[in-house]
Amino acid sequence: MRDMAEMLSELRVADASGAEPIDPAVVEADVARGRRALVGRRRRLVGSGVVAVAATAVMAVTVSMGGQSGSGTQSEARSTAAGRQSSVRVELASYHGAQPAGFEVRTVPQGWKVVSSTPYAFLAVPPGTDTSTIVARGAAAQGGFDRGIAVTLTGDAQFPANEQPEKVNVDGRTGELGATQDKRAMWLMWSDAAGHRLQVQVPDKLGLTKQQIVNFADGVTATGKATTGKG
Rank of each mutant, 00 (worst) to 15 (best):
S87G: 04
A37K: 05
L198T: 01
A98M: 10
D30L: 12
R42Y: 08
P127Y: 01
G144F: 00
A77F: 02
G66D: 14
L188F: 05
V168L: 10
S86W: 04
G66L: 12
L208F: 03
E176L: 14
S48V: 13
A32V: 04
G83R: 10
E20R: 10
V51A: 12
H96Y: 10
T154L: 10
P21R: 11
D130H: 02
S87E: 15
S75H: 11
L153H: 06
R2H: 07
R184M: 12
E104Q: 14
A5Q: 06
L8I: 13
S69R: 11
G66P: 00
L188D: 05
K183L: 15
L92R: 01
L177K: 02
D130P: 04
E76W: 06
P127G: 07
A136T: 09
P21W: 00
R89V: 15
H196C: 04
Q74R: 11
G144D: 03
M65V: 14
A32E: 11
S48C: 11
V200A: 03
L177G: 05
R173C: 02
H196E: 08
H96E: 15
V46D: 13
E166L: 12
V170K: 05
S86Y: 02
Q181V: 09
Y95R: 06
R184A: 14
D156H: 01
D192K: 00
T80E: 07
M65P: 00
M7W: 07
G67Q: 08
G49Q: 08
A101E: 14
K230V: 09
E166T: 13
S79F: 02
N162D: 15
R33C: 05
A101S: 12
V170E: 04
V27Q: 11
A194N: 14
S9Y: 07
I149N: 00
K210M: 10
T221H: 12
N169P: 00
G138Y: 06
V135C: 01
S48K: 12
T62Y: 10
G175P: 01
G72N: 09
E166H: 04
R36M: 10
A136D: 13
T223W: 06
L123N: 04
Q201V: 08
G111E: 09
G97I: 09
E166I: 06
F159S: 05
E76M: 07
V63G: 13
K210R: 14
A185E: 11
P119L: 05
G67W: 10
T56Q: 02
V151K: 00
V13K: 11
M65K: 12
L198S: 02
S71I: 07
D130L: 05
K205H: 15
L153S: 08
V13D: 13
S75C: 03
T131F: 01
T223C: 12
G34I: 04
T223E: 12
R197E: 15
A121C: 10
S64F: 14
R106E: 13
T62N: 09
A25S: 11
A81S: 09
R2G: 02
P100F: 01
G175Q: 02
T80F: 03
V39L: 12
G148V: 01
G70I: 08
G34P: 00
I134G: 04
G143I: 03
